[in-house]
Amino acid sequence: MFSRISETFQKLKKNNMKGFIPFVTAGDPTLEISLDIIKLLPKAGADLIEIGIPFSDPMADGKIIQASSLRALKEGITVKKIFEMISNFRQEDSKTPIVLMGYFNPIYNFGIERFLSSCKQSGVDGLIIVDLPYEHDIELCTPARKNGIDFIRLVAPTTTNERMPLLLSQSSGFVYCISVSGITGSKEAEIQIVNNTINRIRKSSNLPVAVGFGIKTPKQAEKMLLGAEATVIGSIIVEKINEIYSSDKEYKKKLILIDDFIKTFSNEIHRQVRN
């Protein structure tokens, strides 16, 4: 089946490159700027884009992403508007995969069928839903995969060897390896823990692995990438966006600052050679 995500990882493999996945919160700092930021990401080196669906109670997120979610909600972001943003993005870019990350309630509330058909229509490629462990696959994972939308699983350092194959058997696209036992953007990622988790993932899955949570510098990204195919950079980008736009929202000129910042990561990550 056609999947922008698997094609992207195949292309990276062919070019002997590692993948860079920036995360931004939809609607932060405003709906308009948010769309412009998403549009500049592929040009700044993003291989895949992860877009956060803001939720009032993001229990797996640290302060930075909590605050960005609240800002976006204040700006009036809704699930429907996120799909509008993505449709708009797709008019310019038909190649870069988009993955939505979020919590189940806004999706459940939107309606599963309506949500999945909106994903297809607007060009969403995958879903990462924090509070849907495989025990609840029937809720969204199964119908999503039937609709050709990848369901990307989060694997934690605490995931037992017993759970690993069960969890990964219904996973597609790539596997998201959480680098720490913790929330986003708090503890620093630890290489031993990451490598241990990746090794355990490899025993149950051939999917590419992306490492995320707690990666704050390009140097750290480089280290984390040793055993993985890609890395997700989230909180630090969200924080940078807030820093740049907290003073005023005269933004067109400022997009260049975001662009520069994103490139410090993509350049470092793309310099890495696959083993």
């Binding site: 797996a60 924090v130 509070d131 462990p133 025990e135 609840h136 934690a156 605490t158 995931t159 036992s181």
Partner: peptide
């Protein structure tokens, strides 16, 4: 055994917490 009271209940948490 899955914690369901009819349609309600369950265990909607992040993977990190599931083993706990």
């Amino acid at each position: 055994e899955h914690g369901n009271f009819g349609h309600y209940g369950g265990r909607f948490v992040a993977e990190t917490l599931m083993p706990l």
